[in-house]
Design a protein around this nucleic acid. Structure first.
Lengths: 137, 137
DNA sequence: ATGCTATTGATAAACTATTATCAATAGCGC
DNA sequence: GCGCTATTGATAATAGTTTATCAATAGCAT
């Protein structure tokens, strides 16, 4: 990156402000709110550059295209809402001694992905789902 | 499925005997040890049928193509060896109260993927990696 | 403000994984 | 063993995502 363009600022700005991992389409749409002419090619190109420069990292969920978020958020896990499909960060950790694995395997890292309903999509008080849902785990 | 073919038997047999989630390529190669003419098209076709019939389920890991394993193994998690890329089953569970999420979110299920070295790829005694690795988590 | 050229926008191309096509093959009932 | 037709093998086609191309645009140093 040698020039400070509106497109690049918009893309990094969107990722910074929204505060959850965004898909290329989400970045395109949100970015076009700032720079209407923004194209998907520029989104991909800029994401690639931002990754190379260390500003952002790809967030990979099983069976889904990459999302992107700020590197400075550090290591953490994700929650995907099964209703709105938005992905949120979870910064709590699992206690080390609760990581299950055969004794002769060496665990170097782990990924935890939670699925359920985000606060926006939780059925408002009165429903019967919330407590029942716990049994699905 | 209306006919009992060598190809189908070979594919289901391989998945059953190997006992860990297999990629389409692994299934093709292992299957060709039984039926040399086996083609990748038949692998995909048969996997699709076996899923429809409920014999197998796809195993999805972040950023990777589907692997397949027996449905009757039930719900569990996976360990991927960063050295040989093989994926293994983990049948232990995480204690429910250790699942981290915001209070106003409803967690319905979760996925746990461990990464590290499987027993085959663990550096034999004398290396310095094993204990050091724990700090990476 | 002007000029150089990095960057953009539009779209074609590439890539990977999976599915469709179709003539040849091979289960299986008779 | 014969014949019917489901299944196979080889490969083309598709789908979804990401990358390459290239003329037009727009930072930014002067």
């Amino acid at each position: 990156m040698e020039r400070n363009t509106r497109q690049r600022n918009a893309i990094l700005g969107v990722i910074t402000e929204v505060g959850r991992p965004l898909s290329t389409q989400e970045i395109l749409v949100e970015g076009q709110a700032v720079v209407p002419s923004l194209s998907i090619a520029t989104v991909y190109r800029t994401l690639k550059d931002l990754i190379t420069e260390g500003w952002i990292v790809p967030v990979k969920l099983p069976g889904e295209a990459d999302r992107y978020e700020l590197t400075r958020l550090g290591k953490h896990y994700h929650f995907k809402c099964s209703s709105c499909s938005k992905v949120f960060d979870i910064h709590e950790r699992i206690k080390n001694n609760n990581l299950p694995a055969p004794a002769d395997f060496i665990v170097e890292s782990y990924d935890l992905i939670l699925y359920g309903r985000c606060s926006e999509c939780v059925p408002k008080s009165g429903g019967t789902e919330p407590e029942a849902a716990k049994h699905l785990i």
